[in-house]
Write a protein that binds this DNA or RNA. Structure first.
Lengths: 343, 343
DNA sequence: CCCTCCAGGGAAAACGTTTTCCCTCATTTT
DNA sequence: AAAATGAGGGAAAACGTTTTCCCTGGAGGG
């Protein structure tokens, strides 16, 4: 086997080896019909294969003014659910011929802006905002031709835009109903910032449902904490909760929050453990959180949906909303450290 | 506020607006000294700011034959530890002026090859192999000038190369010693494919240590399963384990494997629960796996180390090995579903 | 007063593609 | 037999940068 040239092989090299012009090579590579004889095609293919040629993407990008690159801007990669969605996106994008660049905005406008600008400069094919936050560039970008897809959280300003997510209100209603059917009378709600449309929708829908069924929702049963770290929010809220008369159930607006609550209650050594509900259904729950019931987001459906959205935005559709089906996963596993399950 | 041009603003526009040539704009943007008067610099800066100009990266890439893009090829993004490292890498790379493209090779040679070729075509600044597998392109790429950094797993063929990871042998010895100090006489070892240098080193070092201290290591206490899914490996091994006389301790070569083992034992309803050890120390362990002791990999140190490696490879160093410090995190939390902790 | 040198800045080449023209034959149609 | 058509393929422009030359004017030194 011959050692490869250390300098990258360009279309010129292939053309020379095949004895044709670079135009012909380009056309063969791109499968342009009726522009080369079968014999020429074969010769070019052979030369390309022998040299292990692959077009440098910078040249293509310059000419075509677009790369086959999709940027995923996630608000928090420490959240396993985000990475699960990103993982699904990666696979689907690869199958569709894209590569994924993954960015963590840490839920800040500054970082999101920085990345939006960077991705514009890199001519990303599309940008997926996995948990968008309001920011200057986000507004500016609306007037450009940039393809943007919102996932989980809608546009912070409510502007019309492509969206992928679950029906948060419906899921919240299901949770409320489940609580009432199980006879839980004292239900605590723990949530992160309501700047997130998802959180807002969930909390609002739950409260509305309770009231609709004639239950009052006391304000001090709705807890939150000033942080972007869901674990911490859960922990702090859980500690505050453990100081009072115990609730029958706790509904956390994300699994991470639920983890925090659970830990707080466990460490506080509460006597009776409440039923705990979450959102997302972390892929690991079956394995390590058998005490957690959760609204499962269909991670693996997100990838394909994102690819669809990216393609749609390209053609015409613009601003389609895709609601993916969620499932309420009820788990009955041990719920407290002492093993004194109440059922 | 004026609506932005929908067509991207190029260096030409800035030059026109500032009344200078594009050469000057380029030099000002790139901070080339002694090539522009203070006044000119100010004018160019102003024009660039007003147009919100940022150089299209394709142009740069073409000219400079390199992008500021680092590809991270992970063997399994479903593993939270991998994503934790990737997350750390993302942050560090961003601070260093790079963007990260994240790829999942699913531990297959085909996908790794496909991505290696793709990233060569995209002129990635460097490639980080987070769990490399042997593949044709991996061998081919050695003779090119591509910068490659191996993380966690060394080069599958043992070739000299940049490496970042922990001292697996030392950690394994610590684990073995801990087991012996605690008086665990029947210790089971569960591992994934030994094609991974990390796994190999861990298992070998543990066995060696046991023998060194005069303990025999019976083959039927070393379990594995034919899968790349660590959870499944753990589950299957755990089920086999639960059919026999219970071990005092189980050492899993990754936390995911440990999760699988734990679930198997819990579902099998074993009477006495063994102490369980893992590797990686999943960031969520403190919250949801208080029964798991684990060798903590310093995730957040990986990002900076990767950036260093990427820079080193550039200049001269080539093939430096960076061993990051691990910690054995011992947890004493409830270990079994029935709460009958043995201590 | 002449020469040298330097700061400041422009023209143009080069990077690797894709695609639009254009040209040349050979074949078919009138 | 002349004309139209079409297949096959090449030359060159264009995409947006960076950087190498080159030019000009003025300051400093002899």
């Amino acid at each position: 086997m011959i050692a490869k040239d250390s300098l990258p092989v360009s279309i010129k090299a292939v053309a020379a080896r095949a004895g044709v012009s670079i135009a012909t090579v380009s056309r063969v590579i791109n499968g342009v019909a009726n522009k080369a004889s079968a014999e020429t095609i074969a010769r070019v293919r052979k030369a390309a294969a022998e040299l292990d040629y692959r077009p440098i993407s910078a040249g293509r990008a310059l000419r075509n003014r677009q790369t086959h690159m999709v940027a995923v801007l996630a608000s928090n990669l420490a959240n396993p659910t985000m990475t699960a969605i990103a993982t699904s996106a990666e696979a689907a994008l690869r199958r569709a011929g894209f590569v994924m660049v993954l960015c963590d905005t840490h839920d800040t406008a500054d970082l999101q802006d920085e990345y939006l600008r960077e991705m514009r400069a890199r001519q990303a094919h599309a940008i997926v905002l996995l948990g968008a936050v309001d920011s200057a560039q986000l507004r500016a970008v609306a007037s450009s031709d940039m393809r943007i897809v919102f996932v989980n959280r809608r546009h912070p300003l409510g502007w019309q835009s492509s969206f992928i997510g679950i029906d948060n209100a419906a899921a919240a209603v299901e949770l409320a109903d489940t609580c009432m059917e199980n006879g839980y009378r004292r239900v605590a709600i723990v949530h992160a910032s309501k700047a997130s449309s998802a959180t807002q929708e969930r909390v609002d829908a739950m409260c509305a449902r309770f009231r609709e069924r004639g239950r009052s929702v006391s304000a001090n049963m709705i807890l939150t904490a000033d942080s972007t770290d869901h674990l911490r929010i859960g922990l702090e809220s859980g500690l505050r909760l453990s100081g009072r008369r115990a609730p029958d159930a706790v509904v956390a607006m994300s699994d991470l929050i639920a983890f925090g609550v659970h830990r707080a209650l466990a460490e506080a050594g509460v006597a009776t453990f409440p039923r705990i509900f979450g959102f997302d259904d972390n892929p690991l729950n079956d394995w390590i959180a058998p005490w957690l019931s959760s609204v499962r987001i269909p991670y693996s459906d997100f990838g394909p949906a994102i690819v669809d959205a990216v393609r749609d935005e390209l053609s015409a559709g613009r601003a389609r909303t895709r609601i993916l089906p969620h499932t309420l996963v009820l788990r009955e596993g041990r719920r407290d450290p002492a093993g004194t399950d109440r059922r």
